[in-house]
Structures are given as C-alpha cells and as structure tokens.
Design a protein around this nucleic acid. Structure first.
Length: 85
DNA sequence: TACCCGGAAGACTG
DNA sequence: ACAGTCTTCCGGGT
C-alpha cells in the first residue's frame, strides 16, 4: 500500500515550500496555502532525483498533480500555474 | 510558446 | 497477488 516509505509528491513539494527554495517553488499566499512554481524544469529535475527517475519532466510531474485534484490534495488556480493544498 | 487537461496502460512498492 | 501512487504516452484545449 501506498508508497509510504518516504516522499510522496505532495510531501516533497511541502518540504521545498517550507525550506528556502524560492528559486524553484514558493508560497504565493501562505495563509491561503497558495503556492507558485517559479521554475518548472528545475522542479521536475529535483523530483526526478528524489524518485530516481532520470527522464522526469514538468509535463509528467503536472500529470501527477492532476490526479491530486480528485483527492483534493491540490487545486489549480488557472492563469498563473498556482495551486493550493 | 508554454502550460493545462484527463483517459488508458503500465511500472514499482510494501 | 493486490492496491496505492505515481510514470509514461496520447490527443486536444487555452
């Protein structure tokens, strides 16, 4: 069950948001839990390293994010590649 | 352009 | 063998 082992995508994103990786992803409005991806390509590279997937791209990372809409882990704020969790 | 949308299929893990 | 969480691929949208 569940990848539980360690970093799920949302845990990885939360860690980046709570650290100072402002060049890749940052809070747009922390109280509202809105964040913004500043550098899609670098975000995908870091995610790829986490999972040991060399060919990770933002297209694929965002596909995983779309599956999150269904479970309400994240929601898209169109017009600015913003999301909240 | 670059990013966004979801269905379908399949890999990987505990 | 099984179910959860993606990963990969695709055609189409804004």
């Amino acid at each position: 069950m569940a990848t539980a082992g360690c970093r799920l995508l949302w845990e990885f994103l939360a860690e980046l948001l709570n650290s100072s990786a402002d060049d890749v992803i940052r809070w747009e409005d922390k109280p509202l839990l809105k964040f913004r991806v500043m550098d899609p390509q670098r975000l995908a590279e870091r995610w790829g390293q986490e999972k040991g997937k060399a060919g990770m791209t933002y297209e694929k990372l965002s596909r995983a994010l779309r599956y999150y809409y269904k479970t309400n882990i994240v929601a898209k704020v169109r017009g600015q590649r913003l999301t909240y969790r």
